[in-house]
Design a protein around this nucleic acid. Structure first.
Length: 121
DNA sequence: AACTTGACGAGGG
DNA sequence: CCCCTCGCCAAGT
């Protein structure tokens, strides 16, 4: 039988991140928007730092289009390098164009009006 | 149970 | 472009 433990909160995050296609990325804030209800960029980040194997954590970056993982166990360059291998282009400043590489699940769009609507519901 | 921390985000200087 | 402040909420101490 399935062991439903305290990972209930984190599972939806890993599930969503696992759906991000190769060569695309999402921001912590976007994930919080999609999951809604109790999720914030802060907590999404907290969940991601403990992501298990199999989750493409490198496809999650901050809203500035930069990698923020340098603070813990790995050099920040590694994440960017992994994304570049997948086809994501970064500027010299280490930023990628979110208008090009950001991905949204079905039912969502990379559209300001939709995001505004989500917030106001 | 209270306090602190943190793969964040927006706004201001 | 860099730095700081505040809001956010789960987890760790």
């Amino acid at each position: 039988m399935a062991i439903v433990d305290e990972t209930t909160y984190r599972q939806p995050v890993y599930d969503l991140v696992s759906q991000i296609p190769k060569g695309k990325v999402m921001t912590y804030g976007s994930i919080a928007i999609v999951l809604g209800d109790g999720y914030t960029p802060r907590t999404v980040g907290y969940v991601m730092h403990a992501s298990p194997d199999g989750v493409p954590w490198q496809r999650v970056i901050n809203s500035q289009g930069k990698c923020s993982t340098g603070r813990l166990t790995m050099p920040v360059n590694l994440q960017q390098e992994m994304l570049e291998k997948e086809g994501v282009e970064f500027s010299k400043a280490g930023k990628c164009d979110l208008n090009v590489c950001q991905w949204w699940p079905e039912g969502f769009a990379n559209d300001e009006e939709l995001q505004t609507r989500l917030f106001s519901e």
